[in-house]
Nucleic acid binder design. Structure first.
Lengths: 219, 219
DNA sequence: ATAACCTAAATTGGATCCAATATTCAATAA
DNA sequence: TTATTGAATATTGGATCCAATTTAGGTTAT
């Protein structure tokens, strides 16, 4: 008799492990903008050689999360206010399309989960968790969509401004408004109103952009 | 006296050279979809070791141009009809925004150059050049825009379907229609009508998508 | 004291070597 | 004959070493 083929493997390559870890650290702001990424230091941290580290860094650069200069090394990429604005405009263009596509595909379970995430976000008292919970909610809504390239772009865009999103949430009203807007979007999804959900998503992103830019220009 | 700091360098790293060359070869269809990329073979071709080749391949994978499997290697990525359709939808969403942004920024020189490229495209009798000339025209129009992330996404999307675009051009009417539509877009730009230019750009892309998909479903 | 300069340390890019896994193909058993 | 096994080959992932370049620190001349 034949044995079932099972995917034991699952042992990711060293470069992927380093890539994921660095990516997470950059997105979550544990590595600050402009901070140099020393290959040797990172290699020691992960008990590997510099080869997989270099591969990870080159992939991160391809995603725009780090910038490298020959013989000078890589630093965590930052965004100018103009660039930040453009990323939010990009999100405001792409994410409504994702939602519009997702709404008719959402199952009862999807919606129940989204409602859960939405509630969890609004209920959380700990600012440290807001970024993750916000992401959770949006990704749950996006999940029903099958637009893989749109999703890829949206997630990459979100990654690049994740730090700003987190800052925006802790700004005056940021959290409260986001919570309100999330409920609005969720309700539109539950009612199967894709057009409204898309519009509210766009407003949500544009609103965040505006409050963020106002804050940046004040500083 | 101090010497002027001049950018003699310009000697790109080996991995970048390999990356650019492979990327070009894939986009232009010299490497066929599904064709495996052997690190050793490529390294020999470029007189380097496999290290820069691997870095190049990992960057190409990040761009979606190749797919790799652990210990099995990389192959040139292909697109299903659904994926092709989605990429065209993405282009139809993003590129009109680029044009809308670019139109008010176009100088006389930009427009003159665009008219030149447009004429060159329509006048070319050699199907082998159509892909490049088409790209030339569109990139000239895009050039006036300062939306760097939008441009990045549009160009990556175009790269991924460049082969299909070339196929579409040699299809019945493809070239003729593209030429006509290019003139329309150009005229709108010359008249400073950003809205019309954006709309025609969207139509141009959606039209290409439709004729391409019709052809795919027949085959 | 300050600026130019030169050497040493740090850092990156690449080459070569080794280990892990996959693939091929001949030998063998049913 | 055909399916299975297993060794040889091919191929990738990673470690270590070397070369090229940058950076830091100290020395000297003005």
């Amino acid at each position: 008799m034949k044995l079932k083929s099972m995917d034991i493997s699952a042992t990711a390559s060293a470069s992927s492990i380093v890539f994921d870890a660095l990516r997470k650290a950059i997105i979550e702001g544990q590595l600050e903008e402009g901070e140099p990424l020393r290959q040797d230091e990172i290699a020691r941290l992960f008990n590997t050689s510099r080869i997989p580290v270099r591969e990870a860094i080159s992939r991160l650069e391809e995603q725009g999360l780090v910038k490298t200069q020959r013989y000078k090394g890589a630093v965590v990429a930052g965004l100018s206010p103009q660039e930040t604005e453009e990323i939010f405009d990009l999100r405001a263009l792409v994410e409504p399309e994702i939602i519009r596509n997702a709404v008719p595909k959402m199952s009862k379970e999807d919606l129940a989960l989204a409602r859960e995430k939405c509630a969890a976000f609004s209920a959380s008292p700990d600012p440290m968790t807001w970024g993750d919970l916000n992401r959770d909610f949006h990704e749950t809504l996006h999940g029903a969509s099958d637009l893989k390239f749109f999703l890829e772009i949206a997630h990459n865009a979100i990654d690049r401004v994740e730090r700003q999103i987190r800052a925006q949430l802790v700004m005056s009203n940021g959290m409260e408004r986001a919570g309100r807007e999330h409920f609005g979007i969720l309700e539109a999804c539950e009612n199967g109103d894709a057009e409204l959900a898309a519009k509210l998503t766009r407003d949500h992103i544009q609103g965040a952009k505006k409050s963020l830019l106002a804050h940046l220009s004040v500083k």
